[in-house]
């Protein structure tokens, strides 16, 4: 359930990121920095074990059950990025 919520959030946020850009020829650094911030939020949600291992203690209490549907959802999430 929690996992589904995370994936939904990921799709939603990636969609919103893609709609942010109406780009001209100027530097994209600012937008890219924002993208990275969102990317990491979602990346940690998909990889809480790794997040906890690098010291993000908020993710320490989450164990992802690696069912085949979860693996498929994760792949889809990465493809959307």
């Amino acid at each position: 359930m929690f996992k589904n919520y995370l994936l939904f959030t990921l799709f939603a946020s990636m969609f919103s990121i893609s709609s942010i850009f109406a780009m001209g020829n100027k530097s994209q650094d600012k937008d890219f920095d924002a993208y990275k911030e969102t990317f990491f939020k979602e990346y940690w949600a998909l990889n809480p074990g790794y997040a906890a291992s690098v010291g993000l203690t908020d993710y320490a209490g989450i164990l992802i059950v690696p069912s085949s549907s979860v693996i498929k959802s994760e792949t889809k999430a990465y493809q959307k990025c």
Partner: peptide, 21 residues
Amino acid sequence: MLKFKPERLSASNRTDRSLLE
């Protein structure tokens, strides 16, 4: 991700983009 063009990013962000990709 692909919307970010390497030539419009700083050197550090270009590398970040490449690593993320």
